[in-house]
Nucleic acid binder design. Structure first.
Lengths: 194, 194
DNA sequence: GTCTATATCGCGATAGAC
DNA sequence: GTCTATCGCGATATAGAC
């Protein structure tokens, strides 16, 4: 692995462990066993490291969020998308922990974030809408229900993990499944039972 | 106002604006127009200031979270509780933005947080349960539904505000009402219509 | 590409005068 | 209770040898 990539791996680990504020460029270099000067050869500063980690996360999102194009999507597919989203958020958990501060500190990063996030939400919205069209879900006439359901599912997929972290319990796979159950609870009253 | 209280007010404002990490004790003293030495007379360090701010938030929660004892609670009461919760979270918005890092850094604070949070969740659970008992809500036989609904309502009341912040739009009262609507969306399928 | 050495800066914290 | 002065430390960042 290239030095640049090893810097990113180490930074990600340290950021997840104790946060970007307490982890200095010196810490990263020392944990990796290289000199501070060497690190500065690869990245101009800590901000650039953070940007690069965000871009890696964005790329993973774009890979994992897609659905099978050859058949109609099922509720299983929705679960799978949310499960994958949880997994990535866990791997990059420093991101959501510090998101507001990080975006405030870096306008360029903020623009990128808003773009990628909007794409992600549109995907969720289209998915729920497709379920309605396919008869998997039956919604009431009120046209406000669909957007609200999409927002709720999105909110859960973004914040379930931080919610568990705040509770103080160590994260485990059962927590992930519980988050899936909460998401399904929101949709359950509208699921057309066979 | 005492100097101690003015320090807390200034620290709260600065923490909300740019986060605890970038705000030093020097910054707080300078913004307030006192000397760094004076600040250290009132607080041993920044950690103590943060603890004091958390305690102020806890006290406000305990005040605002109670329901009228002289009559059965209504869905209006639930909305009011959540609305008040949003207001406090906005006033102390640095808390949720940095919660995981702050609790990790201060074990004492973490214990206090878990205590207060558990009380708050129990209140929500009891409230939803009371609605079922009073016939305002009718739930299916599945005993897992009640706890899931309580968790969802709780999740929304905790994370709706951070969710709006992350979206990049400036906060406004309409966002608060939209958060209320999302919470009601979760309960709506179970509300007994007259 | 990687190292060592170093310059500059600001933070946290304390001592002691008033 | 509030101030000034100051010390020690660690972080960011760069220069220049290898």
């Amino acid at each position: 692995m290239s030095t640049r990539e090893r810097i990113l791996e180490t930074a990600l680990r340290l950021f997840n462990e104790t946060g970007t504020a307490t982890v200095s460029t010196n810490h990263i270099a020392q944990a990796l066993g290289i000199s501070p000067g060497n690190l500065y050869y690869h990245f101009r500063n800590k901000e650039e490291i953070i940007r690069a980690l965000f871009e890696r996360l964005f790329a993973l999102w774009d890979e994992g969020g897609s659905l099978p194009a050859d058949r109609p999507a099922t509720l299983e597919d929705l679960q799978q998308v949310v499960r994958e989203s949880y997994r990535l958020l866990w791997e990059y958990r420093f991101v959501y922990r510090e998101l507001v501060a990080l975006l405030r500190h870096d306008e360029h990063l903020r623009q990128r974030w808003l773009e990628v996030r909007a794409r992600g939400f549109d995907g969720f919205y289209a998915l729920i809408d497709a379920f309605v069209a396919a008869g998997v879900l039956r919604l009431p006439d009120d046209p406000a229900v669909l957007p609200r359901l999409a927002e709720l599912v999105w909110l859960i997929s973004e914040f379930w993990l931080p919610s568990v972290e705040v509770s103080g319990e160590p994260m485990n796979p059962a927590h992930m499944e519980h988050g899936i159950a909460l998401m399904l609870q929101v949709l359950d009253p509208y699921i057309v039972k066979p």
